[in-house]
Amino acid sequence: MSGSAASAGAPGRIVLATHNPHKVEEFGAIVTATRPDLEVVGYDGPEPVEDGVTFAANALIKARAAAEHTGMPSMADDSGICVDALGGAPGAFSAYWAGHRKDAVANRDLLIDQLSDIGDPHRTAQFVSVIALVTPGGAEHVVEGVWPGRLAVAAAGEGGFGYDPVFIPDGQQAGVERTVGEWSAAEKYADSHRTRAFRALVPLLGGL
């Protein structure tokens, strides 16, 4: 989608400010299930520098850039994993935890290694998603979704992306718990941190 093509805007359409195909797929499913009348439009404009130190700051940076480029209401997610034993890290630095290559496997391996001496009761963590909504008129909203759980001792499953194969969500039956990497896409999209954040955003979408 080019900026000129989107500049006219249209009711029922919102730009998803990301170049991450995994997020595009996930948000497409989430929005379809929650607001089937709302069309999510892809974004191929300039990718801004995410130099914030919080999820909210980075989400706003991306949403503002997309709204300015397209002239349409734009939403952006910034998300990651927050480990209690690490004081909430990696947090906003989740994508770069093992360096600027954004290597998901290296990120997971480093995090698991850092917790190698931490017992299961103390491996608690949360997936956090913050969604920013920015309109061309300058209105801004920020919402958060939190998905509690704990870290596995080793990666399991080929599904999802990022830290999914090492995150065990709360609420599963003892003895048969699975990482998100072992869940189906439908299971994840029904309850993920991004789903929870988007549900909080829905009342703020107004007539979109």
Rank of each mutant, 00 (worst) to 15 (best):
residue 6 A to N: 12
residue 6 A to V: 01
residue 6 A to Y: 09
residue 6 A to Q: 09
residue 7 S to D: 11
residue 7 S to Y: 13
residue 8 A to N: 11
residue 8 A to H: 13
residue 8 A to Q: 15
residue 10 A to S: 08
residue 11 P to S: 04
residue 11 P to K: 10
residue 11 P to L: 10
residue 12 G to E: 02
residue 12 G to V: 00
residue 13 R to I: 02
residue 14 I to W: 00
residue 14 I to M: 03
residue 16 L to S: 01
residue 16 L to G: 01
residue 17 A to G: 05
residue 17 A to E: 07
residue 17 A to D: 01
residue 17 A to Q: 03
residue 17 A to F: 00
residue 18 T to D: 06
residue 18 T to G: 08
residue 19 H to D: 07
residue 19 H to I: 05
residue 20 N to C: 03
residue 20 N to W: 04
residue 20 N to V: 07
residue 21 P to I: 07
residue 22 H to V: 06
residue 23 K to T: 04
residue 23 K to N: 10
residue 24 V to E: 10
residue 27 F to G: 07
residue 28 G to W: 05
residue 28 G to P: 13
residue 29 A to P: 09
residue 29 A to H: 11
residue 30 I to Y: 00
residue 30 I to S: 03
residue 30 I to Q: 06
residue 31 V to R: 10
residue 32 T to F: 08
residue 32 T to Y: 13
residue 32 T to S: 13
residue 34 T to Q: 13
residue 34 T to H: 15
residue 35 R to N: 07
residue 36 P to E: 13
residue 36 P to F: 11
residue 36 P to L: 08
residue 36 P to A: 11
residue 37 D to P: 04
residue 37 D to A: 10
residue 38 L to V: 05
residue 38 L to K: 09
residue 39 E to V: 06
residue 39 E to A: 06
residue 39 E to W: 09
residue 40 V to C: 11
residue 40 V to G: 08
residue 42 G to C: 09
residue 42 G to T: 14
residue 42 G to E: 04
residue 44 D to K: 01
residue 45 G to T: 15
residue 46 P to G: 12
residue 48 P to L: 04
residue 49 V to I: 15
residue 51 D to T: 14
residue 53 V to A: 14
residue 53 V to R: 14
residue 54 T to W: 08
residue 54 T to G: 09
residue 55 F to G: 02
residue 55 F to V: 00
residue 55 F to C: 09
residue 58 N to R: 04
residue 58 N to W: 08
residue 60 L to V: 06
residue 60 L to A: 00
residue 60 L to N: 03
residue 61 I to W: 03
residue 61 I to T: 09
residue 61 I to P: 01
residue 61 I to N: 01
residue 62 K to A: 14
residue 63 A to S: 10
residue 64 R to N: 10
residue 65 A to G: 11
residue 67 A to I: 10
residue 68 E to W: 05
residue 69 H to E: 07
residue 69 H to Y: 12
residue 70 T to I: 04
residue 73 P to T: 08
residue 74 S to N: 07
residue 75 M to F: 15
residue 75 M to S: 08
residue 76 A to Y: 15
residue 76 A to S: 14
residue 76 A to W: 13
residue 76 A to R: 07
residue 76 A to I: 07
residue 77 D to M: 06
residue 79 S to E: 00
